[in-house]
Design a protein around this nucleic acid. Sequence first.
DNA 1: TTAAGAATCGAACGAACGTTCGGTAACCTT
DNA 2: AAGGTTACCGAACGTTCGTTCGATTCTTAA
Lengths: 234, 234
Amino acid sequence: MALQNTETRLSGYAFDGRKGRTALSSGEEGVDSRFDRRLAKLLHHAAQIFCEKGYEGASMRDLSRAAGMSLAGLYHYFESKEDLLYLIQKHTFRTIIERLQERLKESKDAEERVRIFIENHLEYFLANKEAMKVLTHEDETLKNGRGSEIRAIKREYYKICLDLLEELRREKGLQFSGRLAVLGLFGMINWIYTWHNPRVDLDAGAMAEEMSNLFLRGVLNPGKTKRKIAKTNA
Amino acid sequence: MALQNTETRLSGYAFDGRKGRTALSSGEEGVDSRFDRRLAKLLHHAAQIFCEKGYEGASMRDLSRAAGMSLAGLYHYFESKEDLLYLIQKHTFRTIIERLQERLKESKDAEERVRIFIENHLEYFLANKEAMKVLTHEDETLKNGRGSEIRAIKREYYKICLDLLEELRREKGLQFSGRLAVLGLFGMINWIYTWHNPRVDLDAGAMAEEMSNLFLRGVLNPGKTKRKIAKTNA
DNA sequence: TTAAGAATCGAACGAACGTTCGGTAACCTT
DNA sequence: AAGGTTACCGAACGTTCGTTCGATTCTTAA
């Protein structure tokens, strides 16, 4: 009998009454049981398949083939396909936020902190392309409890970025819409999975610098904008 | 017997030996047969469902329900689910490019032409959210002939934008990577479908101006960038 | 050495999938 | 009014889907 969770299915939020008590959280004690290590590998394989074929397009049979495990065997590690997607997204999101917060301790300068945000994102993004594509491409796939838990983490990440930008705005006395700036920035850095080719494009560090320059110049410079496109016509 | 195409299936590229000879192309004569008008409505309904559930997640039965037509009846208008996606993407892409080229005739000024590009994209994007989401979200879904035809149109659109930016760069004597600028810009304006809320956010025109300012200031201003994040640490 | 639990498996379940087929109804031309 | 074409439908086909079940092997601690 697998997954001796008592009532995780009913609680609506607690998707964590999982097996050998660690559940991949990279937290507290480095227990990392046999179960956890195997699960981590399965998540990795699954992310690759979801990345290739999309969540709906990938079958559990595809996953079992990629993982070298029988179809039934997979269900020892997660309770459903949806749960699998949830675990991938949660682990990916938590890791990128964790690393970011570590790196943000390095600087108090507002502009540099924004650069750190961008560099952290791109570095993790390009080093974990598959999982990050699954995170961004399938962000409306999860429903109900699992979906709202992931959406909460996403808002947390959004908020961190927004705070960094508003700190910058305050410090430099600028004027711009925080929401628009954050979402413009997210667009630039999340869109990368659709085109980045390691044989043609810069590596993560260089790309982060270029994108930071492009974005920060746009945000930092005064609004000497050519006003409105004239509706002139013959 | 439906779709009296002779050998469209074999030719690999010519997906256009379609029924009553017009095939939605909005071209030459405004024939717009009964067939074409019904097909256009079906594409619209289908785009809504694909937008909601994704291409793989949407079933032909979902589509038949949304269109108020029997499952079998749908196949009178297209030959497969994949063909349906292809028709949606082609029609959407062709329309946005067509409108863009019309609008670009309005100005010879390099900067303003970039603004026109952005405004055209956002205006069409927000007025046809569903179809545009299907275009951007499912851009790797189509395979083989249909896929490479859509990818060719996409390259055409990319090229138009690249040319506009390089014209701007030449005129103002600037220095930046065209590829990175185009893809950064595409990121900003394509990402919108993931967050835009008409009750909270600006309308297309105002959004286009804000995004244009953000992007153009980033591109136009000199590289007075704070160099590299120091690897300093305790 | 053994017994309990964790890990894995083959085989099967019912449901849902995209597509097809033969037929009927609606429409248009003559 | 007739006849041919277009538009549409109910019912089914074969396949694939996510998931489950009972049984078997592996691992581990006493």
